[in-house]
Simulated assay, not measured.
Amino acid sequence: MALVGCSSDGQLTATGITVTRSACPAVAIPAATGDITLFNPENSRDASAIDVVAHITNVRSTCDETGENIITTVNFEIRGQRRDAAGAREVVLPYFAAVVQGGTAVLTKSISRVGLRFEDGQTRASTTGTATGQVARAAVTLPDEVRRQITRERKPGDADAAVDPLADPTVRDAVRKASFEVLVGFQLTDAQLSYNATR
C-alpha cells in the first residue's frame, strides 16, 4: 500500500501503471517516405542510373500547448549523396507535412521544397527542413465520461479489475479520435514510392 501515494508518469501504483497522456501529437515519418532516389535517365531503375539519393534524419519537434490550438513545429535534416561530383549543383526536393487523426484520417497536408546544394567536387550535402501542424485543443480532449472510465480505480476482486478499458469500443473509438500525429516525408511520385517499397 506504500505505492498508493504520489505517482509520476510510468510509475507503478497499487492500481496499475500511471501514464500521462500528452495533448501533443506524435511526430513520425511514414513508411517508405523517408528516402528519395533520383535517376538519370529518369525512367531507368538500374543501379548505374542512380543520380541522387537523400534521406530525412534527426527529426525533432517542439509543442506549444498554451493556446486554443496545439502547435507542433518539426525540424529535421536532409542528407544527400550524388553520383557525379563535377560542378556545383542544387537539387530541389519536395516534402510534405500532414496532420493525421486516429491513424487514418488526413486533416491537413502541406507541401514545401528544400534545396540540397552540392559544392563542386563534393558528393555529399545536407540541409535542414521545417514543418508545422496544429490541432484544436478541444479535439484532443477526451470526454469526461471516457476519462473517468479510463482512470477509475480498480481494486483486486472487482469484476472488471483485469479488463482493459480500451476493450470497450466506445472508449477505444474516443481515444482514437482524440489521437493525432504530425507526419513528415518526401512528396514522392507513384514510381518513387513503388521503388522505395520494393527495393
Rank of each mutant, 00 (worst) to 15 (best):
A88M: 05
R45G: 04
T73R: 09
T18A: 09
D158H: 02
T18H: 12
R113F: 05
V182H: 00
T15C: 05
E90V: 14
M1L: 12
R21L: 13
P156N: 05
S110R: 11
G103I: 02
G157L: 11
D158L: 01
V19C: 01
Y95F: 15
G34A: 04
P41W: 05
T198H: 04
T13V: 10
V91T: 14
P143F: 08
G121H: 09
V27T: 14
R113C: 01
L188Q: 05
A139E: 11
P169T: 08
F180A: 06
R152Y: 03
I36R: 08
A32I: 02
G121L: 08
A86Q: 08
L142N: 05
L12Y: 12
E181L: 09
C6S: 14
N75A: 11
T66F: 01
G5A: 13
G185T: 10
T33W: 00
S61Y: 05
A88D: 11
E90Q: 13
I50L: 10
V53A: 06
S22P: 02
L183Q: 15
F118L: 10
M1F: 12
L193S: 13
G5C: 07
R199N: 07
T20P: 00
V92Q: 11
L107N: 12
D160W: 00
V91H: 04
S48E: 15
G10T: 10
C63F: 10
V99N: 04
K177M: 10
R199S: 03
E119P: 03
A2Y: 10
S7I: 01
K109A: 06
G80N: 08
Q11I: 02
A32F: 12
L193G: 14
P41M: 06
G34C: 03
S110E: 15
D64R: 06
G129D: 09
A197Y: 04
A138L: 07
S44V: 07
T33P: 00
V184P: 00
T108P: 12
V74L: 06
Q101S: 14
A174W: 01
G121K: 04
A174Q: 03
